[in-house]
């Protein structure tokens, strides 16, 4: 029950951060290039806040107003055998692992399955799967929406991902469908468009 309450309070990437009490943020200033998750360089047009808590070693969350309201999740170079979020309950609810033979079309499926298990929800659906360029590489863009058990709040998300030498590079944005998604998704997509890998 606690798990549901926690998850319902936070957006996808934000909900999977460890130790919520210890959040520390540093400002990512707009205008100049900024390095995210150690491998993706972007040019934000506004100031963002980098969360010191990392869901995984190769992942990093940025937010504008707090991860429950808008969360930009960068994943840089996820290799075969690694998980998209922290594999917090390996015994009972293990997260899917990256597979070296993945194609671009597998990215939305991998993302969906990871999110369903991590959030413990079945109310998750992916749509609008389309090709896009991410940092000059062939990539896949998809939208999604989800809710967690016990909460009527619907969140929307959009993500772009690509595979370089079998490793996953992904930028994902999620926010409540009420107000925040509409307001902030264009900013997130502009950041995705500016990415260099």
């Amino acid at each position: 029950m606690n798990r549901f309450t926690l998850a319902s309070a936070l957006a996808l990437a934000g909900s999977l951060l460890s130790a919520p009490a210890e959040a520390k943020y540093t400002v990512v200033t707009h205008g100049g290039p900024a390095l995210a998750a150690g491998g993706i360089t972007v040019n934000p047009a506004e100031d963002w806040n980098r969360d010191s808590r990392k869901p995984i070693k190769k992942g990093e969350v940025w937010t504008l107003d707090g991860p429950s309201l808008n969360a930009l999740y960068f994943v840089s170079g996820l290799a075969a055998g690694e998980t998209l979020y922290r594999d917090a309950d390996k015994k009972n609810r293990p997260l899917p692992k990256m597979n070296g033979s993945m194609l671009l079309t597998d990215i939305p499926e991998f993302f969906e399955s990871s999110a369903r298990v991590a959030l413990n929800t079945s109310l998750f659906e992916v749509s609008n799967v389309a090709p896009v360029k991410l940092g000059g590489h062939d990539a896949v863009r998809f939208s999604y929406r989800y809710a967690v058990q016990g909460s009527s709040l619907i969140r929307n998300g959009v993500a772009q991902g690509t595979l370089i030498k079998g490793q996953l590079y992904l930028i994902d944005f999620a926010a409540p469908s009420l107000f925040y998604y509409e307001r902030d998704a264009p900013k997130a997509e502009a950041i995705m468009a500016s990415a260099r890998l």
């Binding site: 939305p108 499926e109 969906e112 109310l123 998750f124 659906e125 992916v126 749509s127 799967v129 929406r145 809710a147 009527s152 619907i154």
Partner: peptide
Amino acid sequence: FLFAGLGFLACMAGTPQAM
């Protein structure tokens, strides 16, 4: 019935893409 509570219904036909 996914998200049926919101009057938003979806048919998934076994894959998320087939909505």
